[in-house]
């Protein structure tokens, strides 16, 4: 297949599958809360509904407020081009490594946080402040686990990582690989704004982070913001899936291989999403100022992954 076609298809897959992951997670949460829950396709209907609605824009807002949803959306999409979804040899895999993905997601966050301050609402500022705080706490743990993965595999580029890990088979499950996975799973909780870090279903001012930032958005813009957040979730999950369990991913661009890989991908993110939903239903939300404890657990795990790798393999 043509590399451009693969890239465009990957973009469409990311946009199309993002609401599904959100729907599955909501359904699993409903199951554990002994509710019936909405259909797993509900997020699609929500996005479609919001896209048709007129929006209300604050009179205080500057162009940042209008540009931020677009810039965030575009940055997340660009990060999506660097992550293996169904094929390990992505056409734009060379354009950025794990560090670039982290910083592209940070670019999206930077503009969302700016927009949160733009309307002059104290909710927005509160959300932006908390978001940047949590993001700062996440970063060192994230970088150490990236280092641990990169040293283990010999590259920070995701195409190389997923190829190497899948070629190693079960021998890839070394202690440092698993330590890095747990560390990155905790980071994923924070990155995707899940309980115990943030509650995506809340509108209580004492607890909300991401919802507070986007409180002033409505209509089309809100749809873009929500879709962007769902895409970010999907990308973080596919990072977890295809760094640690890249089985089934297509290594060459054949139609049959890609179709099989897509099925494998949906299963993987559904399992990870269900696992995240279990974590969400089985824990309570933590106080904001206890979060550094949670993230230092992740920092310590990734440090251990790094040290154990150096002691076992290095030297």
């Amino acid at each position: 297949m043509n590399p451009v076609a693969i890239a465009i298809f990957q973009m469409l897959v990311i946009i199309a599958l993002a609401p599904l992951l959100s729907g599955i997670m909501k359904k699993v949460k409903a199951f554990f809360q002994i509710r019936k829950g909405a259909s797993i396709f509900q997020p699609y209907y929500d996005i479609a509904k919001l896209l048709k609605k007129d929006s209300v824009v604050s009179e205080n807002a500057s162009w940042i407020f209008h540009a931020a949803p677009v810039i965030s959306f575009v940055a997340i999409l660009a990060a999506g081009m660097l992550i293996p979804i169904y094929i390990s040899d992505m056409p734009f895999g060379f354009a950025g490594d794990l560090i670039a993905i982290v910083y592209l997601l940070a670019l999206a966050r930077f503009f969302t946080a700016l927009a949160s301050l733009d309307t002059g609402s104290s909710f927005g500022g509160m959300g932006g402040s908390r978001e940047m705080f949590v993001a700062s706490m996440v970063e060192p743990a994230m970088m150490l686990s990236i280092f641990a993965i990169a040293l283990n595999v010999g590259s920070t580029n995701l195409d190389v990582i997923s190829q190497t890990v899948s070629s190693r088979g079960f021998s890839a499950f070394s202690p440092y690989h698993l330590l890095a996975f747990v560390a990155l799973f905790i980071i994923a909780i924070a990155e995707t704004g899940r309980i115990p870090v943030d509650n995506p279903a809340t509108h209580l001012e004492l607890t909300m982070i991401h919802e507070a930032m986007i409180l002033e958005y409505s209509g089309k813009q809100l749809a873009l913001v929500e879709l962007g957040a769902m895409m970010r979730n999907l990308l973080v999950f596919s990072l977890l899936a295809n760094i640690f369990f890249p089985w089934g991913i297509a290594s060459t661009a054949s139609v049959a291989g890609i179709a099989a890989a897509l099925v494998a991908f949906v299963i993987k993110i559904a399992v990870l999403g269900a696992a995240m939903a279990v974590v969400e239903t089985s824990t309570a939300k933590w106080r904001l100022f206890r979060l550094p404890d949670l993230l230092s657990i992740s920092l310590m795990l990734s440090f251990l992954a790094l040290v154990s790798f150096i002691i076992v393999k290095g030297g």
Binding site: L51, D54, V56, S58, A78, M81, A223, L224
Partner: peptide, 28 residues
């Protein structure tokens, strides 16, 4: 990539939602 993707959110919202209006009002 960032540059090329800029039309995507606009096209997406236009294709799925059609034209909509934006109203200016005070912050909630």
């Amino acid at each position: 990539l960032l540059f090329v993707f800029v039309p995507v959110p606009f096209l997406l919202s236009l294709a799925l939602g059609g034209r909509t209006k934006a109203r200016t009002y005070e912050t909630w």
